[in-house]
């Protein structure tokens, strides 16, 4: 009995073995080096940083009180912003769904289409909306069309990727059952896959619409329509009181969008 107890007390346990422990120390060190390196390399002009509180105060004073005399123009620009977000989200669906179908491993017809799908998704996602907007402003000229296309091109990657993942996560058994009835490929998709990805589809579309509203507010900075055009114009004219109103309006719109999307989410899911 005593022997047994002595044996038990000899058990040694630690969460990480020696090798894992050294790996952890190495990761800590690497992180530290990266931070130090970055801070030393980016060349901050420190006097400006120390001057920042004064600048904030002065800018605040120039913005106060917000001027509401142009509220009509701001309101219309806001509507335009929402329209850009809504239209581009809607149009994206028609492109993103086929792309997600060929980018999902379990539905793609062959290797070539799989890589084509993935290529479309990656290239769409790796370019920011603002950069797409710059490109389309150069092609189509400034305006709403360039904005819609820019938001669409970025959204295809987002919706396509998440829908592709939703398709890959489906339960395969209904697919098997539908194949066994002698249904064609498209009917199998319609009955065994579509119902399974429906909840994910609505969640993704609502989320992307929400993101697109926020993205549409900055499109105008490069001339692609929406509230950003007014914002840029007011900054250029040093009309800081109008800038304040526009910023408030954007905050209000984002909060409103948040409220609407969370209500929608509760409804459909």
């Amino acid at each position: 009995m005593v022997d047994h107890a002595a044996k038990l007390s000899d058990h040694v346990w630690s969460r990480y073995d020696r090798k894992e422990q050294w790996t952890r120390y190495a990761v800590y060190l690497a992180t530290l080096i990266a931070i130090v390196w970055a801070v030393r390399d980016i060349d901050i002009f420190w006097p400006w940083v120390w001057d920042a509180p004064n600048q904030i105060q002065s800018l605040g004073a120039r913005m106060w009180p917000p001027r509401f005399d142009t509220w009509n123009a701001i309101f219309h620009a806001m509507l335009e912003t929402v329209h850009i977000a809504t239209l581009s989200t809607m149009l994206t669906i028609f492109i993103a769904l086929p792309v997600s179908y060929i980018a999902a491993q379990n539905t793609t017809p062959n290797k070539a289409t799989l890589w084509l799908g993935r290529f479309i998704l990656v290239s769409s996602r790796s370019v920011n909306t603002i950069i797409w907007a710059l490109l389309f402003v150069a092609i189509f000229g400034p305006g709403v069309l360039a904005g819609i296309l820019a938001v669409m091109f970025r959204s295809v990657g987002f919706i396509g990727k998440l829908m592709g993942e939703a398709i890959e996560e489906i339960d395969r058994r209904p697919v098997e059952a539908m194949e066994a009835t002698g249904a064609s490929k498209m009917k199998v998709v319609l009955y065994a896959i579509v119902p399974q990805v429906m909840p994910a589809f609505f969640a993704i579309i609502i989320l992307r619409w929400d993101i697109n509203i926020r993205e549409s507010t900055v499109l105008g900075l490069v001339g692609a329509g929406g509230i950003g055009v007014l914002l840029q114009g007011s900054i250029d004219l040093f009309a800081w009181q109008t800038v304040a109103t526009i910023l408030l309006a954007i905050v209000a719109l984002v909060i409103l969008g948040e409220a609407v999307t969370s209500a929608l989410r509760k409804k459909v899911i």
Binding site: R173, P174, E176, A177, A180, T181, G182, Y191, P195, M198
Partner: peptide
């Protein structure tokens, strides 16, 4: 597919479309 129509199948996991 035409031949499959003539062969019914029942599965262990029922394989219904839940939604």
């Amino acid at each position: 597919r035409h031949s499959r129509r003539r062969i019914g199948m029942v599965f262990q996991g029922f394989n219904l479309i839940d939604r």
